[in-house]
Amino acid sequence: MKIKDFVFASRVSEACSLIREIGDSSYLIAGGTSTFFVSSKNSKVAIDINRIPIKGISKNNDIFKIGAGTTINDILKYKASGWVLDRVALRHVNQQVRNISTIGGNIARVFYWSDFPVALRVLEGTIKLSGISSKTVKISEAFHNSTVHKDVFKGSLLEYIEIPEIKKGMGFGYTKESRTSEAFSAATAAAFVKVDDGIISDARVAIGAVLPFPVRLFDIEEELKGTKAESLIIRDLNFDRLNKYSLLPREGMSMDYCKHLLRVKISDAICDALKEAMGGCND
């Protein structure tokens, strides 16, 4: 993408005014790393929002509040009970990119390779946006599909994300396959499970990279609910359900290999989530 001009915003209200003033040519940039991989017919006016104080992570009761301008490295370094996004951050490209990329940039524009949307789809929570109107939207609604996502974010500035902590009896798994640690993902999967008395009472599974936009696998989630919380259950999951998606094999993979890789990644994510929910042992 070509940048034809740039302006700086130091407050949320200033950025919102600039978005309105510049209109469709405006392009918000915090870390800006993805800009170099985006193609656009029209050149854009960059609004640099890096000076806006929407950075940092805090925890209030059971909820983590993550400023949209928080870098992936700050997400990696943050430590607190029930915090799991550091696992996603660790798989994010490399240290130089983690130092400048922000979580806001990773989720406000969703590319097939984006890491955090897949994880957030299973963690759920809310996002707070400012712009034409200030609104708080559930992640499940904002990420329903790419059209809804574009509408939710259009003309808006993401301020922060809120996600619940992972408590005892809950587990989160995140897996990603890429050709090298820096390469774009070829298959990403995330899973959340809640276990009560050895039975899975809640489950959420999402995949990305093999599709243009991450999706929740509601069929597989329903299959998991009510079953015994042990890793052997993945053997019985009906992965044929993946056939209904128009998968996009990356890195020269065949469709068969892509499906197989996805099956492995989903299974790993579920097993990791179960292991955590069962306190480190689920076999």
């Binding site: 740039f6 790393t33 130089q96």
Partner: peptide, 25 residues
């Protein structure tokens, strides 16, 4: 494309790839 690190500079104390940072940043 922000992969190899040979263009690394330190910006505000953090290592970044200068190839995927706009000059205005």
């Amino acid at each position: 494309e922000g992969t190899c690190g040979t263009c690394t500079v330190i910006m505000d104390g953090k290592a970044v790839d200068s190839c995927i940072v706009f000059a205005f940043q």
